[in-house]
Design a binder for these strands. Structure first.
Lengths: 157, 157
DNA sequence: AGGTAGAACTTGACGCATCAAGTTCATCTT
DNA sequence: AAGATGAACTTGATGCGTCAAGTTCTACCT
């Protein structure tokens, strides 16, 4: 690697390591949940009927079905969402946000947005905001060679 | 958030979530160790005497002393490194890479570099390589307000 | 109609991370 | 010189993530 590549890689580890750690710690402190748990609830809350099928939710949150199943199980125990089998459709299962779950997302959202701004967005110049979109898209493409993912579904091309 | 900020944030999650997952999985598969374990061994291998004090190693790897202590304990059991108290200096402890540990790093390095290239570096245009340096530095600064970190120590300012 | 393949989860075991608390030194204070 | 403070780790409990294996349906094949 040449020096630009090396510097880029080192700088990248701040994004890859420190950022998620900081966001996770803050979410835990302010809202007593994991960053990933928040993602799940938040994605559900944006659906018109606050419902999504497990496998679709897994894709949207970039998680394995196994991981999602564990997490949804815990969130269900806490009463934040509920599962229901879709009849006549194999093992397909819908997950629906409860009122309590919706309230939790609404309560956590401002702190989350503030954190994302504070740690990332607000310290970037406009050109770097654009660059970050390209970089993220490139990484996504390199890892998931053309499969549909959370980022690829939302990126203009 | 406006649409550029939102898009940047979404793209960012590819870097924050998919990239470490991909690198970790590959390191596990190819070299039977964690990405973080590799970092520890690799950082040590770059020191002239293959030795570093625990707390310095913690800063360089962006880990808490607790996390590092656990990991170093395991690596020591595997015979990849050794700890030794520095006499007359409180609880200060040095960690030294063993020959076996050095061999492991050397064996794992090519695969690691290839992965970093494949998933990140090689899919970026030169200008984005530079942008990534700025973005990483900005994130690092926003999170660790001025404290010395792994990235801040290696970034030209 | 019976059997096979495969999609969509679920489960359990195991390993790793985090947090809070504990330990062990050295140094500073009075 | 005794006690307090703080630095530098270590330890243990708890919870989350991952992987491999298991379950439960549907659909296709012949």
């Amino acid at each position: 690697m040449n020096s630009d590549e090396l510097a880029a890689w080192l700088a990248n580890s701040a994004i890859m390591i420190s950022l998620p750690a900081a966001l996770d710690a803050r979410m835990q402190r302010e809202s007593q949940m994991t960053f990933f748990e928040y993602m799940v609830l938040s994605v559900l809350s944006e659906e018109p009927d606050r419902t999504m099928q497990m496998s679709a939710l897994a894709v949207r949150t970039s998680a394995s079905l196994s991981r999602l199943s564990h997490v949804v199980g815990r969130l269900e125990k806490r009463g934040l969402l509920a599962r229901s089998r879709i009849p006549g459709a194999g093992r397909r299962t819908n997950t629906t946000l409860t009122e309590a779950g919706y309230d939790v997302v609404v309560a956590a959202a401002p702190g989350h947005v503030a954190a994302v701004r504070e740690y990332l967005i607000d310290s970037l110049e406009p050109r770097d905001l654009i660059a970050l979109q390209r970089i993220g898209a490139a990484v996504d493409a390199a890892i998931n060679h053309g499969r549909t993912t959370a980022t690829s579904a939302t990126t203009a091309h």
